[in-house]
């Protein structure tokens, strides 16, 4: 399979506020993420890693700079087009799972396909497939409140991959889980990555980052280390 660039950022800046109170959340980021990579974005709070995540996730537009997602220029698309991009090319996993309580696991996973106008029969089939893939084949009809935290996060992962995105974004996916469950969830991310999925994960836990292949280290709105091997994490945290 030929390697292609999933994320290409060129001179991305993000400025909040105006006049004297301007904050440069991102101060000129150049970054490439290739297909099949498994990256962790790390950094202290206020380092710009969340803003980075929002820009990569097309939830926010950069103030300036170029962003090519899967070869498409998405830096200044309209809200409507960005919604379409998020639906088709991106999958999100959040710390708080964000499942809809009134819907079953299956229905929660079907939701992205609802917005993609996938035919109903196909929705069910694909949603069930995705849930089986994350090991929840037996829990299709359960409501979120009938599931454990780890199971809920699996449902969220199934929801993120059901539209076959080019990039899976996870924002502190293990932040609300205990260590055993964290290992299980990380194993799922590992499996997904091995099957070719590009995964970018924001985390502040070095144990979690160690499961990835590459750590991108943020500080003061800039990338300090772009190709840090997870094994070398200790050197940066010490610094």
């Amino acid at each position: 399979m030929p390697q292609s660039t999933i994320v290409r950022l060129e001179g991305i800046t993000k400025v909040y506020g105006m006049g004297d109170t301007t904050v440069h959340a991102l101060a000129g980021i150049d970054l490439m993420i290739e297909q099949g990579e498994y990256c962790a974005i790390m950094g202290a709070s206020g380092s710009g890693k969340s803003t980075m995540m929002n820009v990569i996730g097309c939830l926010d537009r950069p103030t300036d700079g170029q962003y090519y997602l899967d070869g498409q220029d998405v830096a200044q698309l309209s809200d409507r087009d960005l919604a379409h991009i998020r639906n088709q090319k991106l999958g999100f996993v959040f710390q708080q799972f964000h499942l809809l309580p009134q819907l079953s696991a299956l229905e929660n996973v079907m939701l992205p396909m609802v917005y993609a106008s996938v035919p109903t029969a196909e929705r069910k089939e694909r949603a069930a497939e995705a849930l089986i893939r994350v090991g929840l084949g037996q829990r299709l009809q359960n409501r979120p409140n009938q599931l454990s935290g780890g199971q809920q996060q699996r449902v969220a992962i199934a929801r993120a991959i059901v539209n076959r995105p080019v990039l899976l974004l996870a924002d502190e996916p293990t932040g609300a889980l205990d260590s055993t469950t964290t290992r299980e969830i990380l194993a799922i991310f590992g499996e997904l990555n091995e099957s070719g999925m590009t995964v970018v994960m924001v985390t502040h836990e070095s144990e979690v980052a160690r499961c990835t292949n590459r750590v991108i280290w943020f500080k003061d709105g800039q990338v300090m280390q772009s190709y840090l091997a997870p094994e070398d994490l200790g050197t940066v945290t010490a610094a």
Binding site: G57, D79, R80, A83, L100, L111, P112
Partner: peptide, 16 residues
Amino acid sequence: TQEIGLRKAIGASGQD
């Protein structure tokens, strides 16, 4: 609010 945020994140437009 969170539901709305999530729906938008997974591809719902403002119009949806």
